[in-house]
Simulated scan of single mutants.
Amino acid sequence: MKTATKCVHWLGGDEDAYGAMVPPIYQTATFRQPNAVEFGEYDYTRTANPTRTLLERQLAALEEGAYAAAFASGMAATTALVRLLDSGDEILAGDDLYGGTVRLFERVLPRQGIKVRYVDATDPAAVRAAISVHTRMLLIETPSNPLMRIADIEALADVAHRAGAWLVVDNSMLSPCLQRPLRHGADVVIHSATKFLCGHSDVTAGALITNDAGLYERIAFQQNAEGAGLSPFESWLLLRGLKTLALRVERQNASAERIAEYLSRHKAVKRVFYPGLGTHPGREVHRRQATGNGAVISFTTGDAELSRRVAESARLFAIAVSFGSVNSSISLPCYMSHASVPEDLRAQLGPPADLVRISVGIEDVEDLIEDLDRAFTIAARLAERCAASIGK
């Protein structure tokens, strides 16, 4: 089946005793057992739940993986994965990452004796030079958040595997509709399922997908041991969101390409970060491993105050963290999604203060462009008034 069909037809439908067209929700904490000395297929929802199992099967199928584990958030998924490392191990990470990931790496992992170093993941040679005998995991985002940097998954898989390390790819930015990292050699795919997979801003969830049975067993053990598995209700909501994933992504991708072109021509915009533009670094690599460019665009204005005014003047683009929803949003990563980057790493890992990130929803693209145009006009007028006031 093609991806769009996999999104709609839930795996397990033929097994349902009543032929339900929609997956049932098993909103229960515990299950009756066959006798006093044996466990049935399910015993306690922290360990496993039929609704979550259905979700995990579908997530694995969408990413062309064999196994998946669903968690209470994307950060819970990432935390479970790094828990598999031992004191003295090292993570080599891309130098453009979600701020919450950096917070975990810098403020939690050192207490476990795990070291994290950062490298330009767009340069396989730099990664090869940086990897050490202690490196157990190479973690990247592609496109990265928020600068849309492109990493060559296949090349980095080769580098990681030669060093005996896992390649972990965060695919939250594109979803399996546009990119499937396991196909290119990744060992694990991470998703903040809060984003495109859910698509309606009503679920916080995360997932890990792999083809490695042994690795999956360790992930599932960690999921159960620390109790970070996704609840039945959130699993059910996410299953519902997946039904429209392909449709949403197609619309959002098409609209984002038009908006990126609009921004690239706007006189107030200094630079646009979007892999769909012909000038974007790494575009050819991206086209080899992805079938679309996504719905997240970043741009700079050269003036942090102007960027703030643009964000605050938009109406259809709501100021909000996260991305991937049916509703369009706008934010200043420096102050929101990446505010948790430690001060001593801001110069290396923090986005510039004038960077604006937008997530394109499913609204009519003409309305969205008109909204941005109005926001730029209002921001410019406010700047003129401020300048005039200072002049007085």
Rank of each mutant, 00 (worst) to 15 (best):
G164Y: 10
A157I: 02
N171V: 01
D170T: 03
I153C: 10
D170M: 03
I150C: 03
N145F: 10
C198G: 14
S144K: 03
C177P: 00
S144D: 05
S172L: 08
D170E: 07
T194R: 15
D158A: 14
P181W: 12
L182M: 07
S144P: 01
W166Q: 06
M148S: 12
T210Y: 15
A165Q: 03
S201V: 01
C177W: 02
I150Y: 02
I190S: 00
D202T: 11
M148N: 13
A193I: 06
H161S: 10
H184K: 03
L208S: 07
I153W: 11
G185L: 07
E154P: 00
A165H: 05
I209E: 11
P143V: 08
I209M: 11
I190R: 06
E154N: 08
M173C: 01
A207D: 11
V188F: 09
Q179L: 09
P143H: 09
I140L: 08
A205F: 12
I209H: 13
G164N: 08
V159A: 07
K195E: 13
E141L: 06
V203N: 08
I150P: 00
I140N: 04
A207L: 07
K195N: 13
V189W: 12
G185V: 08
L178S: 04
D158Q: 14
G206H: 12
V188D: 05
H184I: 00
R162G: 01
L156P: 02
A193R: 11
I150M: 03
R183A: 01
D158G: 02
A151P: 02
A155M: 05
L139H: 15
M148E: 10
H200C: 05
R183T: 04
D212Q: 15
P176V: 05
V188M: 09
V169C: 04
R183Y: 04
K195G: 00
D212S: 12
L208Y: 12
I150T: 07
P146S: 10
A205G: 14
P176W: 14
L167F: 04
V189E: 12
L139E: 07
A160D: 11
G185F: 11
P181S: 12
A205N: 11
L182K: 05
H161L: 02
F196I: 02
R162Y: 03
L147Y: 11
V188W: 12
E141K: 09
L156Y: 04
I150Q: 05
S192M: 04
H161Y: 01
N171Y: 04
D170S: 06
A151E: 04
H161R: 14
C177H: 07
C198M: 15
A207S: 15
L197S: 06
D170H: 12
N171F: 06
C177Y: 08
V159W: 13
L174R: 05
D152R: 10
M173T: 02
L208V: 09
A205W: 12
G164H: 13
A157S: 14
I150H: 03
T142V: 06
I209R: 13
K195T: 14
V168R: 09
H191S: 08
Q179W: 08
N211M: 03
L167H: 04
S172M: 04
W166C: 00
R180Q: 13
L147Q: 14
D170P: 01
A193Y: 10
R183S: 00
A213S: 15
W166R: 12
S192E: 07
N145S: 07
C198H: 15
L174Q: 06
T210P: 07
L139T: 03
A160M: 09
D202H: 14
D202S: 09
P143R: 03
S201M: 11
V159L: 06
V169F: 08
